[in-house]
Amino acid sequence: MTELDINKKTTALVVIDLQKGIAARPTQPHAAKDVIHNAARLTAAFRKNAMPVFLVHVTSTPETMLKVKSDTTFSQTGPVPPDWSEFIPEIGHASTDIVIAKKQWGAFYGTDLELQLRRRGMDTIVLCGIATDYGVESTARFAYEFGFQQVFAEDAMSSMSAEQHHNSVNYIFKRMGLVRTTAEILAVIE
């Protein structure tokens, strides 16, 4: 296993979709409350160490949503609640955080995430959030293509099923970066 080495001057935390409308859904293998707890620990540590925190959330509306033909989609019963895209209170929103609003799964396409990371001299990102195989993986694939080093906080992310989560973690993320626990990441930066 590659040693985890995090440079505090060039590493940012990217938190994917920990917003009220998404974090309220049931997740596996880690319960959403555990993902939130671990992500909150990471955001607190990054903020304490003056390391950038990027909070990413979906802000699409019925008018701006992607309208692709597919065999299946996410089901939504009724209208989206007005606070659906608000960040969960456990994560909060510090004045130093950079907020990225997206309209699709990944946090890079159609946003200024890459620009904001590069302007701050970031070459490494720590990723967490919900869902592992949607928002996190889509963001990770772009980050890999852009040449960012990546660390995945395995217990600070989850999906709709354990199988979906494990597929991304074991077959995708381990080829694009380092998969570690929240405790292992915190031990290096605290």
Rank of each mutant, 00 (worst) to 15 (best):
A32K: 02
M51I: 11
A131C: 07
Q149A: 15
N170I: 07
E86I: 00
L117R: 08
K33W: 01
Y109I: 15
I130R: 02
A140Q: 06
A31I: 01
D34F: 02
F46Y: 03
A131Y: 13
A40D: 08
T181V: 13
A143T: 04
R47H: 09
M157F: 06
F152V: 13
S161K: 05
L66S: 14
M51C: 05
N38M: 00
Q116H: 06
F87T: 08
S138Y: 12
L127R: 11
A101K: 10
E163M: 11
L115Q: 03
R25Y: 04
A156K: 02
I6K: 10
S158K: 02
P82T: 08
A107M: 09
R120A: 13
G129F: 02
F173D: 07
S85F: 04
T132R: 07
S60N: 12
K103G: 09
P79T: 06
R118Y: 06
H165G: 02
A24Q: 10
S60E: 12
A39K: 00
F108L: 12
Q149P: 02
W84R: 05
A94C: 07
D71N: 15
P52Y: 07
I125L: 07
G106I: 10
T132C: 07
L115E: 00
M160W: 07
A50Y: 09
V188N: 15
F108G: 04
I88K: 00
D34A: 03
E163S: 13
A44H: 12
L13G: 08
E137Y: 10
V126I: 01
F46D: 00
V15A: 06
L42A: 06
N167C: 10
A101Q: 11
T59R: 06
A39G: 08
T73E: 14
Y109K: 13
I6C: 08
H93Y: 04
F108K: 11
